[in-house]
Design a binder for these strands. Structure first.
Lengths: 296, 296
DNA sequence: AATTTGTTTTTTATATAAAAAGAGCAGTTA
DNA sequence: TAACTGCTCTTTTTATATAAAAAACAAATT
């Protein structure tokens, strides 16, 4: 049956909300809570019922009241709060780059299902997703073969990225000076400087900033296929950098500088300067990725 | 349970083989038949058992003999020989461009399953596939929304195609003169001329030739993400042109001519000529597609 | 009259079950 | 001794069943 991860997440969120409420205060209506939590009223009602059962609130028709502030052990342990598909994806990526899987390996879905503690359906969905990402191949007999996170794969991924981003740069430079994107770019530049100023403490925030910066640049050429490719890239980057913490700080510092040069290139209005600063940055990113995949 | 389309196809193929055999002749071994039909011995045995049951052959250990030649009604009707996934895909594409579906429409998986006469799992797989193709979108509440085969979609599809093929052209022109691809290109040019010479009768063969031509050009820049995009394109083209037979002959004739100019452009070694002939052809393809989607 | 709650109906996500197809082994035959 | 058959075990594919979540509806309250 379906997992109730949504319920558990919402329950904990509701506890957070109650923690900021006065005891004996009246609680908002069900539709209001549903809107706040971004879930359906059905789930809100399930959460409210559970809270009442635990003695945290009382419900009498539309009179809902907070009886006591939530305590630490009222929360549902976050062990199984992750959506199933995310968990499978995470474990699968770990398996894919781990020692149990070499490129060209034939995948045994049943075996993976047992290893991950999920049903074969979940594995099937996951395999389908990654095959669209080009990490797997479906053979004629219906079996799956890994292609692996190889040097070739990364090279092709970056080829595609460069193709797309170079075109975006061309369009970006040509934007009229009153386009709102220039303002967004300025804000991002400020964020870069702020991060540099407090780099020791905040360097881990770079990953998010990087994502937003490239997303902004690419947004001048909206294309849903590009979205797909960016999806692959963020999955790869996400897992990749999770396993390669070595030199993370130095890497981020260098990238920050390159971003600023890239932003200057865009602002200069000079196409060749913009292209060159973009090329430099993407080249560094490619080398970093290749070096950490192939550390030999 | 799993469909036995493979068994049925193999059974009919076996009948074809038997039709070319002498009555009372000894039949090949199971492994031999498995290799010939490209299936496992398990399925061969199921087919042989069915043939024996029908009195077409006798089996006694390894002594297998043809009793009588197969007749027309020995064949399994080809109604359900199509793999399930293909059938669902076909029906889904038809539904997607049909009157029951407008862009932005929320998809009811259960309803589609009933309409198509398949289980919801099959629909789910199909929706997953098309979402990677950018024709559908998954909403936060887990529902699917159609984006539809709109003008925007086609524009983005062709943007991507042009981006990829222009780059391929650059690389193609720079190939050394002894590269085997030049020979392949010559063969394709010959096929184009042969098709033009007998255009009245054979113009329907253009679709296949078109596919092979572009595949050859793009093969100079191997990239698995590109393969994904080409996958979308062939699905779209396949269904699109199936429903738009109008002006097909004239369209194919024009494209043949453009292909030949394109081939000349590549052979000339002159980059700007190659690019221009490519641009012209892709531009025509784009207009044709847009015109037939938006006939108003 | 506009919300809110209580209840019912739909729809989705996942596990389970079962058929189909593949893989492999041991004994047998040519 | 090399290939073949009969059998068993494994893996994949699909349908079905069921819990979770959403949506819709109706009665009640402010």
């Amino acid at each position: 049956m379906k997992t109730n991860a949504l319920f558990k997440r919402s329950y904990n969120q509701a506890l957070d909300m109650l923690a900021a409420t006065q005891v004996e205060a009246a609680l908002p209506s069900e539709p209001a809570m549903a809107a706040t939590l971004g879930i359906s009223r059905t789930t809100v009602r399930a959460v409210l019922a559970a809270l009442a059962m635990r003695g945290i609130i009382t419900i009498d028709g539309r009179a809902k009241q907070l009886l006591r502030l939530p305590k630490r052990n009222d929360y549902i342990a976050d062990a199984d709060l992750e959506p199933l598909a995310d968990m499978v994806e995470r474990k699968f990526m770990a398996w894919l780059v781990g020692p149990d899987c070499s490129p060209g390996h034939t995948i045994n879905g049943l075996d993976l299902a047992r290893q991950f503690g999920v049903s074969t359906s979940a594995i099937r969905d996951c395999l389908g997703k990654f095959s669209h990402f080009g990490l797997l191949e479906r053979q004629s007999n219906g079996r799956w073969r890994t292609l692996g996170l190889t040097v070739d794969f990364v090279a092709e991924l970056f080829d595609m990225r460069e193709l797309i981003e170079f075109r975006a740069v061309d369009r970006f430079v040509a934007l009229p000076k009153d386009d709102p994107l220039w303002g967004d770019l300025s804000l991002l530049a400020d964020e870069h400087h702020a991060l540099l100023d407090d780099f020791e403490r905040r360097n881990r925030e770079f990953s998010d900033l990087d994502h937003r910066f490239h997303k902004l640049v690419d947004s001048v050429v909206p294309n849903r296929f590009l979205g797909n490719i960016q999806g692959v890239m963020s999955v790869i980057f996400h897992y990749h950098y999770q396993w390669n913490k070595k030199d993370e700080s130095a890497r981020n510092h260098r990238a920050l500088g390159e971003h600023l040069a890239y932003i200057e290139g865009l602002r200069s209005g000079d196409l060749s300067q913009a292209r060159e600063s973009c090329r430099l940055h993407l080249h560094t990113a490619r080398s970093t990725m290749l070096a950490s995949i192939n550390p030999g």
